[in-house]
């Protein structure tokens, strides 16, 4: 059980290649999740009962299913449909990378729906009414008042979700993509040294998650600078930051619960 620095050095390019794939997938999934999540959140919160039910089903299925299963479904399942097989869509679904981003994106977007919905419903009526009373059109009130406040409320939960799904990108190995974990595995298969590649890969993951976390915390400080004063935090207790500030050994928290106890969440 030794760490082989020479091996770590020579395998660095391969691991960095894998890390690049992990980053690429993470960023793409965040983009897909933001777009799909925002759209489906509007569907989920629609006054139309049928639409809202579709939104709820979307969340239940894509949040309840482990992401690896969604990957298999997209990669192995969708090409069986003739609409995919017999049209140019086939070109997209033949790409494991596309399938991975779509599969993880569906899972991630379902969490985004719930985070955004939680944020939107946490926005107090007061500022929204004030904006309406000023004669602003409802669309502007939503975009400029309700949404910015909701984003601030949801930022912490979103951070937790992104950190968790970054770690869940290891599932892309299931559809033959060589990400950081895949690269480490390959080096193990060649050298029969499990420790050096896996520990090096672990260090890279640690840097990625913590870098992302520090980025989120900087964003949080920027967006919430209006609360930086000494005035007590009046936001609802559920969205208050538990321990503000920058500390390297703070652990990312956990995703919200699916299904019913939506009001109960950690921090």
């Amino acid at each position: 059980m030794t760490f082989d620095f020479a091996l770590a050095w020579t395998s660095l390019p391969a691991l960095l290649n894998g890390a690049w794939m992990t980053v690429l997938i993470t960023v793409s999934v965040m983009a897909v999740g933001a777009v799909l999540g925002f759209g489906m959140c509007l569907v989920r919160m629609s006054r139309n009962r049928a639409l809202a039910a579709i939104g709820a089903a979307y969340v239940a299925v894509f949040r309840g299913a482990p992401s690896i299963v969604l990957l298999y479904l997209v990669y192995a399942g969708l090409p069986q449909l003739s609409i995919v097989r017999d049209t140019p869509l086939w070109l997209l679904f033949a790409s494991p990378l596309f399938c991975a981003i779509l599969g993880l994106g569906l899972n991630h977007s379902a969490y985004v729906v719930e985070i955004l919905r939680g944020g939107l419903s946490a926005v107090p009526a007061g500022p929204v009414e004030a904006a309406l009373a000023l004669g602003l059109p409802p669309r502007i009130v939503f975009v400029k008042v309700r949404l910015p406040m909701a984003v601030r409320y949801g930022l912490k939960a979103y951070q937790n979700e992104v950190l968790i799904f970054l770690k869940s990108t290891v599932a892309v190995g299931a559809v033959t993509i060589a990400d950081l974990t895949g690269a480490a595995n390959e080096i193990f298969a060649m050298t029969y040294d499990p420790f050096t590649p896996l520990v090096t890969a672990g260090a890279m993951y640690w840097l990625l998650t913590n870098g992302l976390r520090l980025g989120f915390e900087a964003l949080d400080r920027r967006l919430n600078r209006h609360l930086a004063a000494t005035v007590p935090d009046r936001r609802p207790a559920t969205v208050r930051r538990s321990r503000p500030g920058l500390s390297l050994f703070r652990q990312p928290l956990v995703r919200r619960l699916p299904a019913k106890p939506a009001a109960r969440e950690t921090h």
């Binding site: 869940s168 599932a171 480490a184 595995n185 193990f188 499990p194 896996l198 672990g202 998650t209 652990q251």
Partner: peptide, 12 residues
């Protein structure tokens, strides 16, 4: 423990 994927730990 919270900064690395659990699959990596499983492999290790």
């Amino acid at each position: 423990a919270t900064g690395i994927p659990s699959l990596l730990v499983i492999f290790l």
